[in-house]
Design a protein around this nucleic acid. Sequence first.
DNA 1: ACCTAAATTTAGGCACGCCTAAAAATGGGC
DNA 2: GCCCATTTTTAGGCGTGCCTAAATTTAGGT
Lengths: 226, 226
Amino acid sequence: MGSEAIDNCLKAIYQLAGDDERATTAGLAEQLAISPASVTGMLKKLSESDPPWIEYQKHHGARLTDRGRARALEIIRHHRLIELFLHRVLDYSWDEVHVEAEKLEHAISETFEDRIAHVLGDPEFDPHGHPIPRRDGTLPDRADSDLIDMEPGTDAEVSRVSDHDPTMLQHLSSIGVRPGVRIHLLERRPFDGPLMLRVGDDRAVHAFGARLAGSIRIRDIRSTAA
Amino acid sequence: MGSEAIDNCLKAIYQLAGDDERATTAGLAEQLAISPASVTGMLKKLSESDPPWIEYQKHHGARLTDRGRARALEIIRHHRLIELFLHRVLDYSWDEVHVEAEKLEHAISETFEDRIAHVLGDPEFDPHGHPIPRRDGTLPDRADSDLIDMEPGTDAEVSRVSDHDPTMLQHLSSIGVRPGVRIHLLERRPFDGPLMLRVGDDRAVHAFGARLAGSIRIRDIRSTAA
DNA sequence: ACCTAAATTTAGGCACGCCTAAAAATGGGC
DNA sequence: GCCCATTTTTAGGCGTGCCTAAATTTAGGT
Ligand SMILES: [Mn+2]
Ligand SMILES: [Mn+2]
Ligand SMILES: [Mn+2]
Ligand SMILES: [Mn+2]
């Protein structure tokens, strides 16, 4: 049914537009690192498939059908389960898992998916804090917000970090930032300056510029029971 | 460098012709389940690659170059490590591992290969008793011979079984045949009749026809220290 | 409403990996 | 040494997934 190119396209639409928004040709071209012309060809094919993966109107982008969304979530489930498996079972570091998962997500069977899910205890989040879609297509939800919008003087817990830049992951790891870790925002420096914050129990203060802060999401601290 | 089609072709040449014999177009077509014409095209490409994967003379088949053999062994190493990993870590049964490994062998990185080899303790044989090539391209060797040639009245140990037919593997499993198990050949029935033998400590006598017996290799019993 | 820049689609092309049908080479039997 | 069955190659074609260049559509600014 679905080739690797098709799966990647559906996943990209989901990541750019979510459940019911439309993804643009240009956005997909950027995400997939292929030309806009190639995207147009792919979108036409996906919408003319029977049954269709997407709903597509020329010049107005693509939206996933139920089938398309189910397939996208299936691939994302593979990706995130594999990431966690590589990290926990095969001792991959945080920044190595994404690239390997990007290939393996298309190669594993449903059996493999089930077995690693079982070995991992049916996990809900991957090593970067991203929710792992369940087999039925629902997503574990965790209310979180952008670090950028955090109130100075407050505490929060790291919810998730972007997994696309290995060097950024290495840096975050080196200063102790990972999902579940508590942070305290001291202040936001003026004119879109860096966020000054403390990580965990570390006394050091770190300056987070826009790029770095923009790749982190946080959630309110839960019962800060000492 | 190597696509999946190329890797499969090199592996097939190795399996049909070994290190230094030539594989025929027809043999490869059968093994790869593609047309002879497609094989010819592939062989031409492999021999004209720079550096070449094979040595090829029209109408006289293909022989692996050093590079081609190294690549074939690399893929076979992936395959057999993955089979053992699926069996040991993910609880796959004996007959399920081959199909999954056939896909994954092309998708994993060198890192993945190293990590599963390490988790498994640098194993030398896969679940079917096939030798796992080492990273340097050498093969663990275990002198074995065909069950067909076994002397009636003697004992031996199962060395390896063919892994291509899942139903045969299920059957062998059900009667207790797996690498390392001791067998005793009672007699060979006349006119190419079945081999009558006992498996392990089981009192039952099993009849092995030509198909079944031909898929099993054995080795002399090692120190039968009670 | 129109004009134009940006986004998108169309047109044409290429490599890969496969196919079938037709042509050609091989080699064993005589 | 020739013939013919078998094997192999050549010729031509197809779908996928990508490309570039040219045409077209859209939408924002006035
Ligand atoms: Mn799945
Ligand atoms: Mn992730
Ligand atoms: Mn390898
Ligand atoms: Mn095997």
